[in-house]
């Protein structure tokens, strides 16, 4: 058996196996690094930048940076928290994230990560984009106002469901989620609420139709414990209900 390799994360020794990223190794060791577009079931995407960490003094995405022996990784520093907070604040103003009225509130990964990094207000001027709600599907509704372009649904539908229902169209600030049909309507696809793509959204962009607010306040996923303890929406078995795990 070869000697276990390790790096340090905020002064703590974290072992890793060859080929693991800093994120994968940290989560395996029970150390939380905030993230949105990362899901251990899919290839790293590196797009949300919330998991930025200092690796030997350079800022890199923990989800795409391979772990290496002897690395000095910093995550919970004041500077990094401020960067993460800024990213979250920008995500909140780019879309229309109205937490007080959102069905996903209390069980939303975006909201939970925002709380984790200490974001309590959007800070920046809201874009207030005009985006529609697609309720053409009998089982699900897509609220494009809440999409943060993590592409988890794109990857899940393509790589797991084999349906390729979603795509991101446009570049830069014009980038937006689309449904791969001529009408652009979800109702024209073979999407199912049981698809993997329906389970992975870290916000309230893809929701079950005709249902709302079924979990009482106080029993929702992140009502009592932070995301660093509870974990991601998508990796929890009861994520459909959004009920907390004690």
């Amino acid at each position: 058996m070869s000697e276990e390799q390790s790096f340090t994360l905020d002064g703590r020794r974290v072992p890793f196996q060859a080929g693991q990223t800093i994120m994968a190794a940290a989560l395996a060791a029970g150390v939380y690094i905030p993230h949105l577009c990362f899901n251990r079931e899919f290839a790293p995407h590196g797009s949300c930048r919330v998991c930025l960490v200092g690796v030997n003094g350079r800022m890199q995405a923990a989800c795409t940076t391979p772990a290496a022996a002897g690395q000095t990784v910093e995550s919970e520093t004041g500077e990094i928290r401020e960067i993460r907070r800024g990213i979250l604040q920008m995500l909140f103003v780019e879309g229309n994230h109205v937490c007080p009225a959102c069905e996903k509130s209390g069980a939303c990964q975006l909201q939970a990560v925002a709380y984790y990094v200490g974001m309590l207000a959007p800070h920046y001027t809201h874009f207030y984009p005009r985006r529609p709600v697609d309720a053409s599907h009998p089982e699900a509704v897509i609220d494009f106002n809440r999409c943060i372009l993590c592409e988890l649904c794109v990857r899940a539908s393509r790589d797991v469901d084999g349906k390729n229902v979603f795509a991101v169209q446009g570049r830069g600030i014009e980038a937006h989620l689309v449904v791969n049909t001529p009408s652009g309507k979800l109702g024209a696809t073979d999407f199912s609420i049981h698809d993997k793509a329906a389970q992975v959204c870290p916000t309230g962009a893809i929701l079950t139709k005709h249902r709302g607010y079924e979990i009482p306040i106080g029993q929702r996923l992140y009502d009592r414990k932070p995301i660093s303890v509870v974990g991601d929406v998508a990796t929890l078995s009861e994520s459909k209900g959004g009920r907390r795990h004690d």
Partner: peptide, 14 residues
């Protein structure tokens, strides 16, 4: 207008 009906009671109470 254009919002899902099941969301409305929570929105309008604002």
């Amino acid at each position: 207008q254009g919002r899902p009906y099941w969301e409305v009671p929570v929105v309008v109470q604002r």
